[in-house]
């Protein structure tokens, strides 16, 4: 084990997979010479050279499309989109092509490619650079969606994504790049898709979250234990597709109460789906309706004081947990 940042864990995953498999190639805007706008690709050009680590034009749709073609031709491309916001320019290639090719061609093609992108808000980057679009990707069949919360998962899930024979949207949270944690050194360490993690065991209430929301949920759980003696079980989804509903449904059945936390907008957000799954699967075991904590349904304002109202915080998660503890069916 080594302590490292989420950023360095991602970098290590890329490095190990590039060393392991010559069919892995990396491209995106500013990923080579500039070493990535968030420095996730630092040092890769120097180690692996220009044929494998390539800068691209600012053409997001084509960045994804070229990766699709290269994957059809037998490579394992890892394409970086500078942020999730720019993925909207690539939605045609992601949704109409990447997600459909295997199915519409009757299983004759497979697309082992990864499209990495940082997402999430909280850095005062205003409306066009602060979005959480995970529900968009989760909504679309044919693509896997991973979104790690910890440095160890960042490494293990990215390695799984690169080795996976399916196309993967790999989200990284901008505010987690500097977070630190213990990461296994073993180059064969991977984290399987579709297996949620229990970040903290508890008995009173289940908190279901992912990525930075899982980190905040853990902080809220610790505070609630200390301040109110409420024992929270925190489930980190790790991947949104495949979705490990079994784990969070079992947890909610056990505790009888659940709070679902998502950073994306509340309307048609993934939390509605998760809450529904809990209601449907263990309605009889619930002692209160499932609560949702979600992003506010507004374009993100720039001002710090307004921005923090729009993104779930440790306090708002704690309020929802206290609320679900006192509510009853």
């Amino acid at each position: 084990m080594s302590e490292m940042t989420y950023r360095d864990a991602l970098n290590l995953a890329l490095r190990e997979e590039l060393r392991r498999d010559p069919s892995v190639v990396v491209w995106g805007e500013d990923v080579a010479l500039y070493e990535g706008s968030f420095k996730v690709t630092r040092g890769l050009l120097a180690e692996f050279g220009e044929e494998r680590i390539r800068d691209t034009p600012i053409s997001e749709n084509t960045i994804v499309g070229v990766a699709i073609g290269a994957a059809m031709g037998g490579l394992r491309p890892v394409a970086e989109l500078m942020t999730v916001n720019f993925a909207l320019l690539a939605m045609d290639q992601i949704v109409n092509h990447m997600a459909k090719i295997r199915s519409m061609f009757g299983g004759q093609a497979s697309l082992p490619l990864v499209v990495r992108m940082p997402g999430g808000g909280g850095s005062q980057l205003a409306a066009q650079h602060s979005q959480s679009l995970e529900s968009y990707f989760m909504h679309c069949p044919g693509i896997r969606v991973a979104y790690p919360a910890t440095p160890a998962d960042a490494k293990g899930l990215l390695k799984t994504a690169i080795r996976d024979p399916n196309p993967v949207i790999f989200l990284e949270h901008e505010l987690l790049y500097n977070s630190k944690g213990e990461v296994p050194d073993d180059p064969e360490f991977t984290v399987p898709f579709g297996r949620a993690g229990i970040l903290r065991a508890g008995t009173d209430v289940t908190i279901v979250a992912y990525a930075r929301m899982a980190v905040l949920a853990l902080q809220a759980a610790e505070a609630l234990e200390k301040e109110a003696g409420i024992s929270c079980e925190v489930v980190d989804l790790r991947t949104l597709n495949p979705l490990d509903a079994e784990t969070f449904v079992a947890s909610a059945r056990k505790t009888g109460r659940a709070v679902v936390v998502e950073e994306c907008w509340r309307s048609a957000g993934l939390g509605g789906d998760l809450a529904h799954r809990i209601h449907e699967a263990c309605f009889d075991s619930l002692r209160a309706p499932v609560r949702r904590v979600a992003g506010l349904d507004v374009p993100m304002p720039y001002s710090r004081e307004l921005e923090k109202l729009c993104i779930p915080q440790v306090e708002s998660i704690a309020v929802a947990v206290r609320d679900v503890m006192t509510a009853s069916v």
Binding site: N61, G65, G69, G73
Partner: peptide, 8 residues
Amino acid sequence: PIACGLAF
């Protein structure tokens, strides 16, 4: 774009 990727 897919043609470009295959060519690559």
